[in-house]
Amino acid sequence: MPQHYWPLYEVFVRSQQGLSHRHVGSLHAADDQMALENARDAYTRRSEGCSIWVVKAAEIVASQPEDRGEFFEPADSKIYRHPTFYQLPDGIEHM
């Protein structure tokens, strides 16, 4: 019988106080329910999370480093998008 193994899943956890899910690692599981349970056992043992996402690694679409130029450099040069570009008068708060 050809050997094939439990597929790789990437794990993202949003902690109690967190605002977004962070990538914490990966694991292997045969199905989605197992992946969620394995993630809970491996990555939230010390009550580290309140929400878990698991995604099959094969489903993730990632930007490639070769594209770094087109993808990201144009934003670097649009400095007016950054808050530090603007001088605010003294006395203005919450901005």
Partner: peptide
């Protein structure tokens, strides 16, 4: 049978 099962049974 697998590392993840070791974790689960220990838990």
């Amino acid at each position: 049978p697998e590392l993840e099962i070791d974790l689960a049974l220990a838990n």
